[in-house]
Amino acid sequence: MTALAPAGRRRGRFAPSPTGPLHFGSLVAALGSFADARATGGEWLVRMEDLDRPREVPGAADDILRTLEAFGLYWDGTVAYQSRRTALYAGAIKQLEALKLVYPCGCTRREIGLGGLPGAEGPIYPGTCRQGLAPGREPRSLRLRADGPEVGFSDRVHGPQCQDVARAVGDFVLRRADGLHAYQLAVVVDDAAQGITDIVRGADLLLSTPRQLRLQACLGLPQPTYAHLPLVLDRSGRKLSKSRTDLPVTAADPLPALLRAWAVLGQAPPPAAPEDVPAFWDWALTHWDLSRVPARNCLPGGEPTNG
């Protein structure tokens, strides 16, 4: 299942969802992951997280790829599409079933909301179906048993992290009621299959990482390093989102947005304005410093926020 990067070489990735055009918050994540990989001579892959087909916007994937190219964010190899990799996810579920680590769940979201305590990212699943489905209930989703010791890791931006997954989120979904494989499973399987060594992404996924580490351990997969970059928020404290078409970036004039994203990541500005995108990257890749990336979120102009 695992494709190793060349010996001693790092491999990063950017994994957007094609639900709209690339926006400024996603550009920050793409720039950070690209710079972190390329600054050490590593590889950088692009993977479209298009499992949730009902939310996909026609043409968005191609538009995102064209925008990345305009910003000088060139990837290695071919673009992977999660919608074409479902056999890998089904194989991982079979492995977990053989280990008796998963079980069918008949609960609806409403029922979980009524019966679960508040958790890290919504109601904690109370384990209603752990011992089997109640008479007359049909299976809806498939859940992983989240038992185990606390999960700890050292984030390269936020430092030491620790979470008791069972207490924070409970047994979590691997296959949804609509039959689609859940993000937590797909991202773990894909990162291992593509040999990703360093994951650099937005801080909105920091609380998801312990679940992914738990899955990696269950499946016997290697653990990459993690760095969670600051989110770009609007003035009401909401994360920029493609679904709200917030600050889409334009391929026609990429340099100003590149420089703003560079500043959001706390990097020292170039001594003189670069004349074009290649000139920016020639300078930037020799000056990238992850230790300068702030742990706090910010506004689109780079100003700190309490969000």
Rank of each mutant, 00 (worst) to 15 (best):
L255R: 09
S208Q: 09
G20N: 08
R156Q: 05
A182T: 14
K94E: 08
T286L: 14
R47A: 01
P135D: 07
L73E: 05
V293I: 09
L285M: 12
V264M: 04
T225N: 04
D164T: 14
C129I: 13
A5S: 06
D62K: 07
P256R: 03
G266E: 11
A203K: 06
V157C: 10
P254Q: 04
L27F: 06
A268N: 12
P269Q: 14
F280S: 14
L285N: 11
E49N: 11
S17F: 05
G220I: 15
L101D: 07
L215H: 08
G106Y: 04
T250P: 03
Y125W: 10
L247S: 13
R53E: 15
L185H: 06
L31C: 10
N306E: 08
V102Q: 06
R109Q: 06
R292W: 06
S26F: 05
G148Q: 13
D289P: 13
W288E: 08
A98C: 11
Q212L: 11
D52N: 15
L206V: 13
F280E: 11
Y183W: 11
S17P: 02
D178C: 03
R140F: 11
Q216A: 15
D178S: 05
Q194K: 03
P58D: 09
R66E: 09
R84F: 12
E111H: 08
G159L: 01
V151Q: 06
V57P: 01
A87I: 09
R244N: 02
E97R: 09
N297M: 12
A192V: 00
A90N: 14
C105W: 00
K239P: 00
P230R: 01
V200H: 00
R167C: 12
A263I: 10
L285H: 10
V249W: 01
L215M: 12
R260A: 15
G159N: 02
V188S: 12
E49M: 06
G170E: 05
